[in-house]
Design a protein around this nucleic acid. Structure first.
Lengths: 257, 257
DNA sequence: GAGAAAGCAAGAGCAGTGCTCTCGTTTTGG
DNA sequence: CCAAAACGAGAGCACTGCTCTTGCTTTCTC
């Protein structure tokens, strides 16, 4: 697939990568609004018009950066999960597995949940402008092409993996309260698309929690927490632990009456 | 204060308002990134340079719009609260007040909570670009002046009013789980600044919920819910009801064991 | 009321932007 | 081997935010 078909094609992919790299640098330095095609071309020592051979417009460059960023934050989320890939890793993270005891221990899953959320937040703090590109104000005329849908869901999938494992292990508390039928229907079609099975209330809660997680991160990154929350690390960890509870992971073993 | 001191000053304030109006129109049409001083001046039939007499830079115009928008969304939140202004309004909203009964009814407060959240969301849906100005990507070189701090907190204050009333009426459930000391300290200093008294866990939960509320709205507005949540009205209402629970408002009277 | 001071609108101009078009050159594929 | 496609560079268009200078009008002060 990526066979060397000629010097020209190799040069093309190299230049494309160089352009994206330089664009990312400028993005990190000044933000998306100040990203200038001419400046990128200048830094690369080429004419600005030559750049249009690689990206037909500024928005197309942004789209490419958005796609890469979605993959990066998704990878960060997956990498932060100590139990990703199999249920056995869960056991290694919590050696004294009390699986055979009266109540299944949710603690390991809570820790995984917190780790994934923390991984997302850490990536966001390290790449604020790229994060803003993904979860901030959409670019004016820009409508996300369908190609971004899949990578955009990668973080959600990482969260889903934790909950899915917990559900399979029977470590999920039953969520109380009625679920509106239309919401349940949306949850079911979503689960069908993702090929996963969960109680509808859990799925609905997970979607909400997913949005809420990014609300927390965005507020922290966009300055809304200045003069409000000082110790943001522990505030985040604490809040995310409470979020875990709201999707059915009980944080205290035997805490419920 | 606003006495007529001369034709010139009146003209100035009128022109200032006209500029902001036109800018808001362009904002709604194209978004903040495409807001052009020259276009505003053109629409108003004046030279672009004349505009700088009123706003020293484009960012200053944006700042003015941001301030107005903060006030607008704050007003929307307050107006949506049926029980704002006094505890008696709470009684009128729920005529059969079972205040003297065994358990204080939180239902009224939950409805107020949902109403406020819904008011914020409705304003956001009606003014998406202005919302993006407030809670989306911050403008590049722009650092919010201290003057924006107060209006920015108006929505939070509206939420706080509901919880404060509920707490005063004893309708607040005690939040379980330990609260990290630094988070509690932040909550306390915040309460001191706002001159309000609440249990620290409630205050911390409220801050988190505040951020989470905007996470929900932002995801809906910025397109993250497309192909994920279809019936967004009921999804929002349902999620916000669950959020109410997470700050201590029990949604079902006598639902807890 | 006369004159100084300040506020104001307008135009020209600067440096920068995204983007298009044309022009030679180079590489590729039939 | 030669046409076709891809490429880099330059000029140019319409636009942007912003500054500076030039006249004019309103306001304040003596």
């Amino acid at each position: 697939m990526t066979a060397i078909r000629g010097a020209r094609e190799r040069a093309r992919s190299e230049i494309t990568a160089a352009i994206k790299d330089e664009a990312r640098t400028q993005l990190a330095a000044e933000g998306a609004a100040k990203l200038s095609l001419r400046a990128v071309a200048r830094a690369l020592g080429m004419a600005s018009s030559a750049l249009y051979r690689y990206f037909p417009s500024r928005d197309d460059l942004l789209t490419a950066l958005i796609l890469d960023a979605y993959h990066a934050i998704g990878a960060a989320a997956e990498a932060a999960d100590p139990g990703a890939g199999g249920a056995d890793a869960q056991g290694s993270a919590e050696p004294d597995g009390t699986d055979a005891a009266g109540g299944p221990d949710a603690a390991g899953y809570v820790e995984r949940w917190i780790a994934v959320c923390g991984g997302v937040r850490a990536w966001a703090l390290a790449h604020p402008h790229e994060y803003a590109l993904l979860y901030g104000t959409p670019v004016p005329g820009y409508h996300a092409p369908r190609a971004t849908a899949a990578p955009a869901g990668r973080v959600a999938r990482a969260l889903l993996a934790v909950i899915g494992d917990a559900h399979a292990a029977g470590a999920l508390r039953e969520l109380s309260g009625p679920l509106p039928e239309t919401v349940a229907a949306d949850a079911r079609t979503l689960m069908a698309e993702l090929d996963i099975e969960l109680p509808a209330p859990v799925m609905a809660a997970l979607v909400a929690t997913w949005a809420q997680l990014f609300g927390l991160i965005s507020f922290e990154l966009f300055g809304q927490f200045s003069r409000v929350v000082e110790d943001r690390d522990t505030f985040f960890a604490h809040t995310v632990r409470r979020l875990a509870e709201s999707v059915g992971l009980t944080t205290e073993p035997g805490g419920a009456p």
